[in-house]
Amino acid sequence: MARGKFKNLVSTAIPLPMENVDTDQIIPARFLKATSREGFGENLFRDWRYEANGQPVNDFVLNDPSFSGEILVAGKNFGSGSSREHAAWAIYDYGFKVVISSFFADIFKNNSLNNGLLPLQVSDEDLVEIFALIDTDHQVEFEVTLASQSLILPGMGKTISFDINPYKKECLLNGYDEIDYLLNLKSEIAAFEQSRV
């Protein structure tokens, strides 16, 4: 489901320097009982964010008021495990528009792109630098421009360019929906079926 056009943004970022963050951490299975796409942000990183008794875990980054922003920065292999799209919904619903990591799991990457959430892949070295920048100044702002595929690191005069499939980029920039695209192909699909009989 398209979420409207992806807009460029300038934002502070929230660091989560853990590797292999799986989708069970992003949204635990027991919160997958809903039948709509909304409201999952409330339980984003539930078991890292809250104690069993519901009290916030003080040293978890989402509970630290000195961090805020629409960019989540995470360690490599982010989003591994279950195919639950609820993970992308939860991150988006919480208010993030971009996730930066040095490596994304495949299904998570697709799910994010299908929901207007940009998985922005940088090199391991750049990721270390980004974490260091945030560590030094929690209010540091990053600029993400999708059209030019650039991430500007503030105060360093450094621009990182990132890769994205050109087709997916078009979809995000224009808020296109892949289902609409496929629906327009129905006669071709039916012809394909006929050709295989």
């Binding site: 489901m1 799910n111 299908n114 892949e178 289902i179 496929l182 192909l185 129905k186 079926e193």
Partner: peptide
């Protein structure tokens, strides 16, 4: 495995958009 948006694509068109791995 696929996400729910892709489940919708398959229900709607019996097709999915994938880059070849």
């Amino acid at each position: 495995g696929i996400g729910t948006s892709e489940v919708e694509m398959v229900l709607a068109t019996q097709c999915i958009m994938q880059s070849k791995p």
